[in-house]
Amino acid sequence: MTALLDVRNLAKSYGGVHAVRGVSFSLEAGQILALIGPNGAGKSTCFNMLNGQIRPNAGSITLAGQDITGLAPRVVWRKGVGRTFQITATFASMTVRENVQVALLSHHGKLWAAFRYAGAAYLKEAEALLALVGMEAQAARPCGELAYGDLKRLELAIALANDPKLLLMDEPTAGMAPKERVDLMRLTAGIAREKGIGVLFTEHDMDVVFEHADSVMVLNRGELIATGSPEAVRRDPQVRAIYLGDGLLYDAKHREGDAA
């Protein structure tokens, strides 16, 4: 059986600065994989290449045996990849339920329908998804007035609307209170394991990483420097050096290059 996600030698550079170089890894269905590394290590670039927002310079991305390298995000999504963003991106002018309904309409290819009421479409599915993330009580609320933690959960519901095989979560708990972080990741992990969804997430909060990830990858200066179980990675001397030692210094310089 082929891996759910297979990434080979992925590389991206901006004007001579290598943001990501030669990253290779694979992910099985139902597995939860964390991608960590200091700021500017290339996590977001890596992530954005996976769902097609950024075109890689080299390398291949294979989803369930199908090459998806360089496809547009909306095409990648149709192949079964959901994603959440570091800073939530939702539809502020709609209600919580409508946010999910739009994703469902898109999933079912009904977005071009011009003469039916969208607010009545896929109500049950929308309710079910909201219930899954514990947002059913807020379904009718305007999305724009939600608390940040709720927005993150809403994003998760949207990301799950197309029955994804793979879920990409860019810092899913950033900006949340510690209690909320744990709740959200527990929720995600539960859903992923239950539905057999592969999850790849980036994270700064090591507690979250070590509690939920099956496996951890460490990215530094655009390169994978360690991969393995949380325990193994935690013990890795190189990783320790990055997080405690000269990594921070390097970090500042690298960011300047990244911005160019």
Partner: peptide, 19 residues
């Protein structure tokens, strides 16, 4: 209509709608 919602979605968030 669903079309109107899709349109509004692209207006609210280009990022999310593409995703």
């Amino acid at each position: 209509s669903p079309f109107g919602y899709g349109l509004r979605a692209s207006r609210d968030s280009a990022l999310r709608s593409e995703a």
